[in-house]
Structures are given as structure tokens and as C-alpha cells.
Write a protein that binds this DNA or RNA. Structure first.
Lengths: 335, 335
DNA sequence: GTGAAAGCGCTAACAG
DNA sequence: CTGTTAGCGCTTTCAC
């Protein structure tokens, strides 16, 4: 015997027809128990394994796979997402192909098309900021597409998003109600959708309260913790330093806390995105938190709705944020 | 036109044979440029997309996919692993199907067999502690299997592991050379391979130095940080409390540090497994660290070696550990 | 250089 | 209840 045994091999070994083997393998009830036993015996003795590829080809391309494209697989955010997606998929008997675009729109495109060529039933995409027009053809051919965390551009597809504006607004409102009027804003590049939204929300709240929107209090392109630390350093050196700081993501929160703590300044900090060890931060910090897992779950559910053929206008769903208190427990120095 | 256009549709539209389309799609050089142009035009106008499933069926089942089965996709350790694996796979034009066994041997089995049925070329498995005999048939049929972090049982396959014994040994040696003789050991369940190895390494070093191996200084089944905290609490209440503690994983390190800090005890702590925020720990801690990314990279490389047909005896590769200092920076209380 | 025929391993029709 | 006949969309002979 060369190569894997096929259904045909099993059929001749068991002395039944190909179709009977197929029925047995697919648990069709209406087969003579005696034949079933014979077939199973041959399957076992030959070491037969059903070829899912061939089956799905004949069955019209149902691969029971979905693709998940994120920017960076090593980031906990995407992982929580992936984990939630995998759970929903598993419940449906689907497998998940995960791929990282490494924040490169070109790679994202290649991956998406590769996955489509592998005939995934649907595609979950955390989009890089680029055009997604190229997916239109695939959508027209029946591939479901749902964007996560950021809307896609140039493509009318569903998107499950976080209410970034609302989160930033409530964060700034809390600071203002705590008496702050000068609030520093640390944002990553404004080419990132979430950053634009968060900034817009913050400014909304500042404007509503008539608080300062001083250009010196906004620093962009804060990417790494160290960037945040130096941005804070610079703000503290201003003639009128801020009394509170809003951090656009968890990396900047870490850097900001580090610098504030180091300089013994009295600055209230609110940051976006909770993280595992935020309780260890050495001063009280308020975090704009949201349920990343729910983001993945909702997106996957929506994708399966589309795969099931539920037709409706493409829509955006916003997931709520909430403020949580972090960082106190370690703040108590040993006496 | 109903459904997706096929190669046949393109062929008749372009007025060439099916095979010519196939050649063009597969970049075969020896095609008349004029025909190539015609074919491309038809492909574009019909919106043709190559069906990778059908291609791989005829080509003998080469799906250019590998499977990765871990215990828990939401854990950073597995993610770092997954990310490294995905990178190696991408360089080869392979996609990765990731699935979580949720620490259930039965699920692991189902997933592995499902992935084999989908004809992955290879399987990377972080095994739960169970029998992997069921994979033997798949291996015999040519599916490559490499275990990561823990050896599989009942199956002669490659395994890429961390030198847990060596790491624990050097950790205890350091403690001993720092003058400690009574060293508390916090381990998770000894049904976990890594825990058994780490404990064995620690005992080696204790025995070599003639230090105490007091049963009261070993606590098993330390799973969550809180378990570690109470274990430490109990040890501190001993008539002869330990002066140092070795923690079997990062969760127990967090709990142990918390309790030691809270009780103001003077205990030197060494823990296994570095983690993102370990620098924030409020007292100096030594961590037995290792390169998780390398674990994934090596495993994937090994898998592709096997996929490429490199024949050699199944082998185990141990990756080294090293001690790193963590936790000082935040220890300075504000004055 | 190009094309007709065969068939990868399976399932969907239909007939028996 | 079972078997025969097609054919999924593509690639691989092997002629032309």
C-alpha cells in the first residue's frame, strides 16, 4: 500500500461499496449494523482516515474554517481576542487560522487573500489603516467579513468597536469633577483610529467643561513607555504644568506612572486599556477598561450570523467602556 | 453565473484550454504572452479566484498548513510561542491553525485528529498530561509531530523543552551561595511535568549542598497567587521559617512577593518564568528566565525539518535558562 | 507551446 | 437499505 488508504481501499477490503463506507464514516443511521461492523473493522485494520479536504471540495467548499488577522500576535490584547474567537468557533465545530499582519497593510492583504484562497467561510480582521477595497470581490463571492476594534476602509462590512470616544469623555469628566482644569493628553500616532477617537472624546469633555485645550498639553506619537516618561517630564517643566494626565494606551500609562512616581509629582492619572499587572502600579490610577473578550465574542458571533446568511445592512456595534480603579495595593510603603 | 467562477469559466471566456489557464495561474513561464494577457483579462472580468482546496487535493494533499495545539490561548506564554511559530510558518508560506485544548486531554485528542483530517502537514503540541498513542497512526502516515515545553507520552516524537532541572538547580545554588540553608519550595501540582522537573532540580542542589529538605518547606498544588500567599504565610509561622523561597511559576511568584511584602519579612525570592510587569515587583526578585520565543522558533524549525523529510531518531532538545534580576525599580518608596 | 483525457478522495443523485 | 454513476475544481500525464 502506497500512501494513505482511501475510502475505496476500505470498500474493497470490507467487500462493500464506496458509498456504504461513506455512509458509515458520516454516521448515516440507515446502514445494516453488520456492514457497519465490517466497515469499521477494515477502517481500523487499514488505518483509514477520512480526507476532510476531499470531502469539503465535493460538498461545495465548506471548510469550516475562519481566518483571524491581527496586527501582532504577541500582544495580549489580540490574544484575548483570539481566545474568545476560538471559543465561539469551537462551539460551531470551526477551526481558526490566525495570522499576523505585523502592522503592514501589504501583508494584511496577502494574508486575507491567501485565507480566501483556502476558502475560509469568514474573515475577522483587525485592520491596519489602509484600503480594504480588495476584499469586496471576496465578499461578493460570499466570504463573510467582520472588522474588529477599528472599522475597515473602503468596504461596507460589519465592525465591532469599543466606544473610545465615550470612554475618553467619561475619563476626562471624572478628572474635571475632581477639580482638574489642566489635563495632559498622551496619545500614540493619530494615524491610529482609536487614538483619534480617544482624543476627540477627551476634547469633547474639555470643551463641554470649558477647560484648557492647550497644545502644550497634547503629545502625539507616544509609543513606548519611555516616550510617555519623557513627555510627562516635559509637561512637568511647563510654566503651568498639568495636574492630571490622560494616557491613550497602557504602554503610555506605564511610562507616565513611572515618571510621575520618580519625580514625586502630585498628578492624577487616567489611562486607557487595563493590563494584567495594573494593580501593581505604585500610585492610584484610573483605567478606562473594556471587555476585550466580549469584543472577540461579539465579532465571532456576528461573523457566524453572516456565514449563516443573515442579511442586513452592514453595521457598527460599539462596546461600552467603564472606569476602574487600579494601582493602590502596592502604594503602601513598608513602615 | 451561479457561484464562483472556475478555471473552466475562465478558459471558455478567454477562448483557451483549461490547462492554459492553469499554467497562467501557476506562473508557468512557457506560455504565449498574448494568451497570458487574455487569460488575465478574463480572470479580472469574471472575478476568478483560484480554489486552493481543489488544487491541494489533486496535488496530493499539500495544504501548507500546520496546527498548533496549546492548553490555553489566553495565556501569554502560549501566545509568545504562537507568535514565534507563526513567524517561521509565514516565511515558508504556511498558515497556522491554532487551537486550545483547554487543558482537557480529550479535547486535545479531538483537535489533533480534526487537524489531521484537515490534512495539516504537521502538528505542534503543548501536551496535556495524557497518552498520545492515538497520534502514532497519523505519524506513520506522514504527519510531522513536535511537542513543545513537555514531552508527549506514549509516542516517539521530537520535543523542544526548557532545561527546568538545570534552571531550578542554578536558582537554588544561587540562594545557597547567598547563605540560605532553609529554602521554601512553592510548586503547582506535581502531575505537571515542568513542576516535577523543577522540584527535582531544586532537590539536587539542596542535596549537593547538604541543605535542609524539610517536608514543611515544600508546598504543592500552589496554583493561584492566593495559594502562594497562604503557603508563604504558613511557612513564616513555622518554628524555623525559611529565609528564602523558590516559586515554581510566575503566578506563585506574584503571590509570594505580595505576602512577603505585606508581612515585612526578610525573605529572598527566586521565581520561575519571567513576566511582563516583573520589574514592578516591590522587592528584588531573581527570575529563572528562558526564551519562550526561541522555544516556538526551534519547535517550528524542527517541525519543518520533519515535513521536509529529514529522517533521524526522535530527539529532545533542551533550551537553557538564565537568572535575571527583577523588581528593584519600584522598591524605592517616595521619601 | 498547447490541449484532451484522466483522476485526486470524496459526496450527491438516483436507481435498484 | 445498498450500489452505480457523476462530478466538485484543479493538476497531471501524454499526445499534438
Amino acid at each position: 500500500m502506497i500512501g494513505r488508504p482511501t475510502m475505496n481501499d476500505v470498500a474493497s477490503d470490507a467487500g462493500v461499496s464506496l458509498k456504504t463506507v461513506s455512509r458509515v464514516v458520516n454516521n448515516v443511521a440507515t446502514v445494516d449494523p453488520e456492514l457497519v461492523a465490517k466497515v469499521f473493522a477494515s477502517i481500523k485494520s487499514l488505518g483509514y482516515r477520512r480526507n476532510g479536504i476531499a470531502a469539503s471540495l465535493r460538498a461545495g467548499g465548506e471548510t469550516r474554517m475562519i481566518g483571524l488577522i491581527t496586527e501582532d500576535l504577541s500582544n495580549t490584547f489580540y490574544i484575548t481576542l483570539a481566545s474568545a474567537v476560538a471559543k465561539v468557533a469551537r462551539a460551531r465545530g470551526f477551526q481558526v487560522i490566525m495570522a499576523s499582519s505585523e502592522e503592514d497593510p501589504e501583508i494584511e492583504r496577502e494574508l486575507a487573500l491567501d485565507l480566501c484562497q483556502r476558502r475560509v467561510s469568514g474573515l475577522l480582521v483587525v485592520p491596519t489603516s489602509a484600503d480594504h477595497h480588495y476584499l469586496q470581490a471576496e465578499m461578493d463571492l460570499g466570504v463573510a467579513v467582520v472588522f474588529i476594534d477599528r472599522p475597515g476602509s473602503g468596504l461596507d462590512a460589519d465592525a465591532i468597536l469599543v466606544d473610545n470616544q465615550g470612554g475618553a469623555r467619561s475619563a476626562v469628566e471624572r478628572l474635571i469633577s475632581n477639580g482638574h482644569r489642566r489635563i495632559g493628553l498622551l496619545m500614540d500616532s493619530l494615524s491610529i483610529y482609536t487614538m483619534r477617537e480617544r482624543l476627540a472624546g477627551a476634547r469633547d469633555a474639555l470643551a463641554a467643561a470649558g477647560a484648557d485645550d492647550d497644545p502644550a498639553l497634547l503629545v502625539e506619537n507616544v509609543h513606548a513607555p519611555d516616550d510617555a516618561a519623557s513627555a510627562v517630564r516635559a509637561m512637568l517643566d511647563l510654566a503651568e504644568p498639568p495636574t492630571a494626565i490622560l494616557c491613550g494606551n497602557n504602554r503610555s500609562t506605564i511610562g507616565a506612572v513611572e515618571e510621575v512616581w520618580r519625580s514625586r509629582a502630585s498628578i492624577e492619572i487616567v489611562g486607557f486599556d487595563d493590563f494584567e499587572m495594573s494593580r501593581l502600579l505604585p500610585q492610584p490610577v484610573t483605567i478606562v477598561d473594556y471587555d476585550t473578550s466580549a469584543l472577540g465574542t461579539r465579532a465571532a458571533e456576528r461573523l457566524f450570523d453572516r456565514i449563516d446568511g443573515i442579511a442586513s445592512e452592514p453595521f457598527e456595534q460599539l462596546l461600552p467602556t467603564h472606569l476602574v480603579d487600579r494601582g493602590v495595593s502596592w502604594a503602601l510603603a513598608p513602615s
